[in-house]
Design a binder for these strands. Sequence first.
DNA 1: CGCCCCTTTGATATTAATCAAGAACTGTGG
DNA 2: CCACAGTTCTTGATTAATATCAAAGGGGCG
Lengths: 200, 200
Amino acid sequence: MREKDRPSQCCLLLEGWACRYRMLGDGKRQIFSFHIPGDIPDLQSLHLKVMDHSVCTMTAATVAFIPHEPLRKLTAAFPGVGAILWRETLVDGAIFREWMTGMGRRSATGSIAHLFCEMYVKLEAMGLARDHAYKLPPTQQDIGDALGLSNVHVNRVLRELRDNGLITLQNHKLQINDWAELSKLGGFDPTYLHLEKRDG
Amino acid sequence: MREKDRPSQCCLLLEGWACRYRMLGDGKRQIFSFHIPGDIPDLQSLHLKVMDHSVCTMTAATVAFIPHEPLRKLTAAFPGVGAILWRETLVDGAIFREWMTGMGRRSATGSIAHLFCEMYVKLEAMGLARDHAYKLPPTQQDIGDALGLSNVHVNRVLRELRDNGLITLQNHKLQINDWAELSKLGGFDPTYLHLEKRDG
DNA sequence: CGCCCCTTTGATATTAATCAAGAACTGTGG
DNA sequence: CCACAGTTCTTGATTAATATCAAAGGGGCG
């Protein structure tokens, strides 16, 4: 799905990773989010007809398409369902704010550490990771495009994190060896993910 | 309204400017958005019970408080109203993405130029500005905290924009002298604001 | 086996942060 | 109307972070 499209359906990611991004005039790319199974990356298209960015998969993936029309009827007939979906888009926005914080006010190291923590918590909540380890499909270039860094600099930060023993990263398999230290480095506080139902 | 609060009402800004932000452990601040009359800065609190950031006014301001309970009933009874409010929060997210793009992949100059264009279009749409001029309450420090720059650097960029004749800025009154050039500099494309109803 | 993409490393350049200090502005009370 | 205090703005000098350029290894896949 591309910028300027006017989709008539949403896609639910069942397997694999996807991301949202925009290409800039000078060939640069900004990635806005990484998505994992259970996410509906383009849920916003339900109420914003023109796409202001693009979506693509980052791995082999399985997706389910849900046409807008029945979805709109469903949310109208069952406000509770609508509220849950609305809430999803709000959490989406909260994650954007967190990434903004990283790009604006955190160091490259903190930013990357934060991303690794965030993805783990999201995956763990979906039952897709445990023991502080998971598969991380994005390339170093992808990570740079997400956090506003060059691929070279991402590479150097990763080596530093490895040298310090905080993480092990090989073949896109990430193992967080020192969660306490890594989350401290990134100033990671999962409140913004709003995962606990009781807390809203 | 502060981080960790659990508000029971939303506030509609009637007069003045407000902003949303978070303070970081080391005293740094990240501003997420500037708000103008007509905005409901904390609409998300309707479905996310815990605030993951703070809201404050930047000028003398008038606000109307709308309790959550009747608002929730309203959106349940009239799905059309709910859709409109939901849509507002989606545009909010689109603006976050645009700011991310600025911080990640645009130069400081481009980022600031983009912000000035964005605020003008928003104000103009509300009938609060015309002729490419408006009152801009944020200090240079505020602008820096919003775009991830130091106040000193913001000052230098502003001087450059002034020296080039692109803008006139005095006493928080901004006049954009060369809209075409400024919007080119910032790579500004208002699609993301989703202002035209026909376009969704 | 070979190719392409990704990773890694080094050298250099650029952007923007930090530190520091003085000037201009704002609001306040006398 | 003026003096004062606290911000905010401005400028210069220096430093730190990160980008860019370039080139050499690795690894997976057809």
